[in-house]
Design a protein around this nucleic acid. Structure first.
Lengths: 258, 258
DNA sequence: AGGTTTGTTCGATAATGTGGTACGAGCCAG
DNA sequence: CTGGCTCGTACCACATTATCGAACAAACCT
């Protein structure tokens, strides 16, 4: 009944409630109580707390998440220098490459997408697996490998130890030796290529953005293999991505483009 | 030391930590400990909990909010039918009106902005006052008044009782009788006008979006008074706003435009 | 290297979150 | 309109658990 994985269990409880609401879009006390296997009174306590704090809203009997998460998220995204200084360059890269461009940072050993040109304002990841596509394993995709290659060796190892190398497609690199070799290549050539390792039929090129000897993130261009494979192998997209990564790097250091 | 305003105080504590980090962008244990006037060990407990849960990230000694808030926020925003069915119409309205367009919902008696065309991806509300411009009093602006006018009388009264009628500019309606008269006008004519009531020099027109006898939100067009006052008084913008609100209404009911 | 500041660990106490039960309001069907 | 049901909410005793102080360790800057 006690969970030593987290110091303050009631906070964990609270986020479990948040997650359960998230899964359903909106939900009632009894529904959540059954889903989380806790007494109604406990759930009610949490809901009331979250409501008073303004993180949950009750609309005609059902509870739903308030817009506060969105506003906090918008704010906190802007604390990433790579986002603030890179967003315009990323949008430019989309226009010049005709691919899907994304801006990624490393977070607790996983890749977190800060911005993606393929995002629609009204799309909604239908809650299949809590972390769906917002957090991805670094070794499974181009920007992730680019980041991994630039990380200090001990961090790289600890990440591999922590998460292992789960596969996503047949092409995903799941062997540690193979990955280390690949990362060495990535590091020397300054970019990473993903050939259906993340998603079947999707090819992408990623490049890390490093400042002061520390990785602030990575950008990538993805597209259907059939459409962009040639441009990738010819080096056309590679140099485009690398150039834009360099632009962001200097914009961070010298503080321009803002 | 005990705070009866919220059932579960440790959850409140936790969000205080979140808020404090938010204020600073990133912060250390000691810094937060002093700001919140709690022992370092307590803060550390909370930070560790939040980190394990993935809501906070430690980067070179400093803690910052993770991207999870952003991803949760993006998801939860899409649970609002008025957002999903209205976003395209809102963007169209911007192009047709050349003003700043916003999409607002009511949340706990306050107005919460779901989308605004004047938002930049890289802007960052510099944390002046926790709720800065993401949550506004309904009586101080056009979309707010439009919502207030359509709310059931008892809800309207309870909101006024709860928050009062604080002024923002010289023009803000702070007298309850005056407000009730104004809202009656708004309700009958189907739109609300804000003449420097929210921001000096800014004029705006708002219209509520109602479905099934319940207000799902409101849209508004704002602009510098000098530029758009004429179009507002001539009714040009008014009908534009009202028409687009109607479009969203029918799109919600019949499920199109998605 | 010394001193200062920081992040982290540990343990006892008292506060507090938990969950059973009970109340009341809302809903649907008859 | 009334019965029966389900849902949301309030209460309270107990035991869990968050808190806090102090002491440790690690990093930083003279």
């Amino acid at each position: 009944m006690n969970d030593p994985s987290v110091p303050i269990s009631s906070v964990k409880r609270s986020y479990e409630v948040i997650d359960a609401i998230r899964d359903r879009g909106q939900a009632g006390v009894t529904e959540l109580s059954e889903a989380l296997e806790r007494p109604k009174s406990t759930i009610h306590n949490h809901l009331q707390t979250l409501e008073r704090l303004g993180y949950v809203v009750k609309t005609n009997g059902k509870y739903r998440l308030s817009t506060r998460y969105f506003h906090i998220g918008r704010e906190s995204r802007a604390t990433h220098e790579v986002f603030v200084h890179g967003i315009e360059t990323v949008k430019r890269l989309e226009r010049e490459s005709n691919g899907h461009v994304q801006l990624v940072v490393e977070e607790n050993g996983m890749g977190a997408i800060l911005f993606a040109t393929h995002w629609r304002d009204d799309d909604y990841a239908p809650a299949t697996g809590r972390l769906s596509l917002s957090r991805v394993h670094l070794h499974t995709n181009a920007p992730g490998k680019a980041i991994l290659a630039e990380l200090p060796p001990e961090r790289r190892s600890s990440i591999i130890d922590r998460y292992g190398l789960p596969g996503r497609t047949e092409q995903t690199i799941t062997d540690e030796q193979a990955l280390r070799a690949e990362l060495e290549t990535v590091r020397t050539q300054g970019y990473a290529v993903d050939r259906s390792e993340m998603i079947d039929g999707s090819t992408g090129v990623g490049a890390a953005i490093t400042t002061d000897d520390h990785v602030s993130g990575a950008i990538a261009v993805y597209g259907p293999t059939a459409e962009i494979a040639e441009e990738v192998e010819s080096g056309e997209i590679v140099s485009l991505v690398r150039e834009h990564a360099d632009t962001i790097q200097t914009d961070i250091v010298f503080g321009s483009s803002k």
